[in-house]
Amino acid sequence: MIGCLVIHGYTGGPYELEPLTSFLQEHTNWHIKVPVLPGHGKKLSLEDTTYQEWIQAAENTLLQLKEKYERIYIIGFSMGGMIAAYLAGKHHVDKLVLLATAGKYLSWKQIMVDLAALVEDGFKGNLKRNKLYLHYRKKWGAVPFKANLEFMKLVKFTRKHLKDVHSPVLIAQGHCDSLVPYKTAYFLEKEISSKKKEIVFFDKSRHLMCLGSDKDTLNMLVYQFLEKEGTATESH
């Protein structure tokens, strides 16, 4: 039997990965767990949470899965990808999937493109139809500065442990991601010690790649990587 831990991103929740988790639940008999990290979810409460608590919550779920299941897969999105990589290095897992993983963050070039689009939509009166604006408007004012510091501490801490990862790994990244520069995928590949690594780029995907126009292709890619027998083959 297979246990699959799925870890959401910073200021997010399981909804960020819902199309993927639903696809896997429909096409497999795996036991899939998507814990809500402390302070996260649809209603944010991040003022008094720490990055250690976020990691511990994911690790507790992983240990529960390891007690019951012979094979373990971990899927991590954004900050959750860094937590996933850290846990894969600390505990043996059979396969690892990293989606838009925040080994580095903020693509200023893409941010300027997105801002230009926001300004244009604002002048045209179309701001309420801009998906990027609608998504992040809900979070503005709900994320304390202290929580952003905790996020940066988590990335700094987990980066040091990328070298400990030896599981076969799939790294997926969107070219239009303004929060995680697409070249981060190459950084992760270089730092991770696994012999079996795959990198796949999605030309149209922004940061929330599991909810974007490429989600069906992404779902199948992740499923095929995890389902295939043996280990991954290197691909660039």
Rank of each mutant, 00 (worst) to 15 (best):
51 Y>N: 01
52 Q>F: 14
55 I>D: 00
55 I>G: 02
56 Q>L: 13
58 A>D: 01
58 A>F: 04
59 E>W: 08
60 N>C: 09
60 N>T: 15
61 T>P: 03
61 T>N: 11
62 L>Y: 05
63 L>E: 12
63 L>P: 00
64 Q>L: 15
64 Q>H: 14
66 K>M: 11
69 Y>N: 05
70 E>G: 04
71 R>A: 12
72 I>N: 00
72 I>G: 00
72 I>E: 00
73 Y>T: 02
73 Y>F: 15
73 Y>N: 01
73 Y>M: 03
77 F>C: 02
78 S>W: 04
83 I>Q: 00
83 I>K: 00
83 I>N: 01
85 A>Q: 03
85 A>H: 00
88 A>E: 01
89 G>V: 05
90 K>Q: 12
91 H>M: 09
92 H>I: 02
92 H>W: 10
93 V>C: 08
94 D>F: 03
94 D>V: 01
95 K>R: 14
96 L>A: 02
97 V>T: 09
98 L>K: 01
99 L>M: 11
100 A>C: 12
101 T>S: 15
101 T>Y: 00
102 A>V: 05
102 A>L: 02
102 A>K: 05
103 G>S: 07
103 G>T: 09
103 G>N: 05
104 K>L: 09
104 K>W: 08
104 K>R: 13
108 W>A: 10
110 Q>G: 02
110 Q>N: 11
110 Q>K: 11
110 Q>P: 05
111 I>V: 15
111 I>C: 01
112 M>T: 13
114 D>L: 11
114 D>W: 08
114 D>H: 11
117 A>V: 13
117 A>H: 14
117 A>S: 15
117 A>Q: 15
118 L>T: 10
118 L>H: 09
120 E>Q: 09
121 D>N: 13
121 D>E: 12
122 G>I: 08
123 F>I: 07
124 K>M: 10
124 K>Q: 07
124 K>L: 11
125 G>R: 00
126 N>S: 08
126 N>L: 13
127 L>D: 04
128 K>R: 15
130 N>L: 10
132 L>I: 12
133 Y>G: 03
133 Y>E: 08
133 Y>N: 03
134 L>M: 14
134 L>T: 13
134 L>I: 11
135 H>A: 08
135 H>C: 07
135 H>K: 10
136 Y>I: 10
136 Y>G: 02
136 Y>H: 08
137 R>I: 08
137 R>G: 05
137 R>Y: 11
138 K>Q: 14
139 K>C: 06
139 K>Q: 08
140 W>Q: 09
140 W>N: 10
141 G>Q: 01
143 V>E: 00
143 V>P: 02
143 V>K: 03
144 P>N: 03
145 F>S: 11
147 A>I: 01
147 A>T: 04
148 N>R: 14
148 N>W: 15
149 L>K: 13
149 L>I: 14
150 E>I: 06
150 E>D: 04
152 M>I: 11
152 M>S: 13
155 V>T: 07
158 T>D: 07
161 H>K: 11
161 H>C: 02
162 L>S: 01
163 K>C: 05
163 K>V: 14
165 V>E: 07
167 S>W: 06
